[in-house]
Structures are given as C-alpha cells and as structure tokens.
Write a protein that binds this DNA or RNA. Structure first.
Lengths: 290, 290
DNA sequence: CATAATGTCTGACTTTAGTCAGATATATCC
DNA sequence: GGATATATCTGACTAAAGTCAGACATTATG
C-alpha cells in the first residue's frame, strides 16, 4: 500500500511524536530540557564538562549557565580536574542522584509501557535493535580486545548459538577445533569486536599458527546489524591487522549452511581451496594472499 | 547483553538523534521549525486552522502569528470557512507549494539515504512498520467500509497472499467459497478495516446468510501490527455489528495452519463445531452465540 | 433577540535556547 | 619565563517558543 519512502516517513512521524511525549514527561519535573539533558549526561557517567558539551552539542557559554543552574538547585557539584585545573569535572550530589533516578524512572516507565502493551515484545525489541543499529551505523567502532573479555565472550556465545540453530546437526564447541585464546592475541594474532556504544554487534578473530599462514575465525555479526556491511568492515580490519603483523597468507574454514559468509569471502578476494584441517563442522575452505 | 528496557532506550537514543538531524536539515530552509511545521501540515492537506493547531498542539496566539508570517512570505493564503465565517481555512499559494515540495524533497532524501545504506532494506522497512504500528496503536481506527473499496481489497489481497504462503497446498481464492461482497454490506453484514491514518492494518468481514446465522470471514492483521491485539478488536467490532443487526448466532471456518487465529477464537467464547460447509480449505469450525 | 459560546487575532509578556566577544585562570612550548 | 594555546566563565545580546488576557466577529441557544 505504501512505497518504501512513505514507510520510512510513517515511521518518522510515529517516532517523532513518541520522542516528543518523552520530552514532555521530562518537562514535568519542572526543569527545562537543556538542564535535564545535562543532569542526565552527568548521571550516565559523563563527568568532564567538555565531554558533556561535546556530547550534547552545546555552546560553552550555554553549558556553563546550565551547569550553574543545576548547581544552584543543589543537584551538581563541580571541581577542577585533577591533572588540569582549567578543566572542570561535574558530579551529582545526593539530591542530584535522586533527581537523576526520577528521570531514569520516567524513561524506564515509558519503555516498559511500550513493551507491556505488546504481546510479542521480543519481535518489537528485535525491530528496535535493527533500527538502532542502522541509525548508528556510522558510530560503530572496531576495537581490538582480548578474546576472553566480556564483550568477546558475549559475541562468541551468540555465534555458537547461531551455529547451533543453523547447522542441521547442531553445534558443540568442544567438538570443534576451538582456537586457543593465546593464538588470538598480539603478536600471534588478534581479536576485534564491533561496538555500538557499549553493545557488541560483531566480532572476528585472527588466529596465528605455526604453519606459514594465519586463520580467520569466529566471524559473527549480530542479527540486528545485518545489512550494514559490518562483516566486510570486520574482515578488512582483520586483514589490516594481519598485514601489520607481517602475515602474508590467510586461511579460513566455513560451512555451506552460512551462504552469506561464503558470498562475502568470494567477493573480497578469497579463493576456495581443499580441506586443510580435520574440524568436523566446516565443509568449505578459503585462502587469501595479502 | 542488554535487558529489554535498555534495548528500548538504546532505540530511543538512536531515533532521537536521527529526528534531530532531520529538524536541522529543515532549518536549512531559513525558516523556524514552528513555521515549517505549519507549512507542512497545510501541504499535507490540513486546511482548517483549528485542526492544524490541534494537530501541532499550538496555542491559538502562536498559531495565528505563525500563519501570519507564512502569509507575509507569500506561501499561504487564508480565507473564511464556507459554512462558518469564524473559522479560517489555509491554502498554499503557488510559491507555498514549491516551498512545501522542497521540504518534501528533504524528507524523502533522508528516507532514501537511510534505505540506500542498507543492503537488506526490506527487513529494515518491516522493522519500521512494526514499530510505527506499535507506537500509533492507540490511533488505529476501525472503520466500516465497503468490501470492494481500495482499502478492503488491499487487505484481502494481503490475506490471500498470506494464506498462499502458510497453507502447504497454497491458496486459490477461486476454489474457496469467496463471500459475495453484497453479503458483507449492511443490512445483511458488514466489512471493517483497521486504519492507521491512511494505512490499512487489518480487516474482518461479517457475512450475512439465509441459514439462521452469520459468518465471520477474512480476519486478517498485517504482520507489522501483530501483537497489538488488533485481531481481538476487529472481532469485537464485528460481533458488536452483528448484535446491532439482530444476529444471534455466528459461525466461522479456519485452518489449523493458522494457530494464532484458533487461539483467539477459543479465548473469546467460540466453541468448536462440526464442519458446516464444503469449502476445501478450512479444517476447523467454530460457533458463538451472542 | 438577547445571551452565551466559539474561533481567531492582537498586544504584552516570559522562558528557553543559542550566539558572540572578551575576561580569567591554567597549561604548554620554545 | 614569556608567548601562546586551552577550558571555562561572564555579560550582552537575539531568536524562537510559548502564555495569557482581552478584543472582535460570527454562530448557536434558549
């Protein structure tokens, strides 16, 4: 009934009025939105005044006045920065924390209200994740991390769960040649996580070996982030890291039940090669010379 | 990694900044947002001043001034309402239509840009539809319409397509006992469409017969509107209409490939009965006494 | 037909947001 | 140690949004 652009615009209208309603409920706490935003930024852990200013896109004069008004209300205290007395650091007072909690309660209530109305909340949440990822795609950062940090383990857990769903015979990590974490740390290899703010959206491992090549392992992109070309960005980052480590040959194994992965490899210079290991799960093997 | 409320709030943040970006691009046309909103409301067919004021939530004084500024720019003309000279009616001038088209182009470009970045645009659109429906659920109106109007035909087309996907043997309307449109018009029956603004989200038909009962036919809810209890609202409306027509017994047929429908019927006072027609598709039959 | 209600407009006002040019204190660099 | 850069603050300003009381013309009501 509607063309794609109209559908996006219907979404925009719906969302604009929902956002407006939340703003209105914030105004109910008797403080202009500008001041409320600063208070909430501090409450969410942003303490450096310049950082808050940057995050909210405020002029330094305006920021200063908003901070002052929060101080006069007794919600915020500012002190000089430890290492640099020009910079100021803002902190919530006890009253400020209470007021921040009240704003949090409003936001949470709005979210809960929306979810409670819906009998298929998980579908609604999945749609929200997808859109949030699409709208913030430019802010997805690729971070090198330890393969055993929380974010990496979360990604791997999701990855294994997805293999379990997609392989006819399921997936059991212990039967697979699970790479040793130490092979995915510099200087032998590395592990890269795609982060959208604090949420991991994908990962890839570069595993060093003693056989004259390194392997790409554990390439995964969250369902909500598919379509953003994050897989390619992760692969590019892994290849760059490999080049930086002086690696000239990469290999990987994959499974034909993951056609989108094979598609990505073939379109980025990988060539199929014969089986080079005895892992029971993969049935496709690729190689790329850097 | 995130709890449901955090996921909604991540969505809110993403969407707030996207909405802000569109507002900023609107400001690029050298007009305050208030005036731009009024201009766009008129462009989208809202002509009655009171209606615009209500839609945008503006004070009458502010509204009057915004209209005046648009008139001074030569974008809008106001005249007295035909039937009531107290009311004013706003219309775009030729220049106004051009300016409105420029705003439309900005909105469309934003929408197209978002879609173009995404390799799985249909999934993104489906997610947007779902969220738009969830956020506007309170504004879904149930309208009695002719079973052959555009909205009704759209719903029926989607309904047939879905049966085709869900029945193992497919679905061919011509093999089914397709109800005659005249049986779904008052006073024999009726047809109800759930409308979200101009978009149909669901339908149900009440088909009069000469056998001492009426039938519920063509209950359908758009995939993007599932979880909003729209099916139940439609059924309630159809039952109310039946009572209004003096009907005391309702029957319907359905298929076990549509378990959510059976679930709805059983939870709202319908009882299973033996087959009462020779339609090849249904395998479950229900009855409800009003 | 007088009175009340309605829709819009005007004037006078406040609040919020935002801008910009210095002032001030501190840090960095040669 | 002096010049320069940086972070914040202050004062003076503008624009936009919003509020409120009353004016005015028109329509509805008893």
């Amino acid at each position: 009934m509607l063309d794609p652009v109209s559908r996006v615009r219907r979404f925009n209208r719906a969302v604009t009025s929902a956002v407006g309603a939340l703003d209105t409920s914030f105004l109910g706490r008797g403080r202009p939105l500008g001041a409320a935003r600063v208070l909430n930024a501090i409450g969410h852990g942003r303490s450096d005044v310049a950082e808050i200013r940057d995050y909210l896109g405020l002029d330094s004069g305006l920021m200063s006045r908003l901070l002052r008004s929060l101080e006069e209300e007794g919600l915020v205290e500012t002190t000089a920065h430890q290492d640099d007395a020009r910079r100021r650091v803002a902190k919530l007072t006890r009253t400020g924390r209470r007021e921040f909690a009240a704003y949090e309660a409003l936001s949470n209530a709005q979210a809960e209200g929306l979810l409670a109305q819906h009998t298929q909340a998980e579908a609604l949440l999945a749609a929200m994740d997808l859109i949030a990822s699409a709208l913030t795609r430019d802010r997805v950062a690729l971070d090198e991390t330890d393969p055993q940090c929380d974010e990496a383990r979360y990604c791997l857990g999701e990855y294994y769960a997805e293999l379990g769903r997609r392989f006819k015979q399921g997936f059991d990590v212990s039967l697979s040649r699970d790479p040793d974490a130490k092979d995915m740390r510099r200087p032998r290899g590395t592990f890269i996580v795609a982060m959208s703010d604090t949420l991991p959206l994908g990962c890839v491992g570069l595993k060093g070996t003693d056989h004259g090549y390194a392997e790409i392992k554990r390439l995964w992109v969250a369902p909500s982030a598919r379509g953003l070309r994050l897989g390619r960005r992760l692969m590019d980052a892994a290849e760059d890291a490999a080049r930086g480590l002086g690696i000239t040959l990469l290999r990987l194994d994959t499974n034909s039940a993951l056609p989108e992965a094979g598609q990505l490899y073939r379109s980025t210079g990988w060539t199929e090669i014969p089986r080079f290991n005895d892992d029971p799960y993969p049935d496709l093997f690729y190689e790329k010379r850097l």
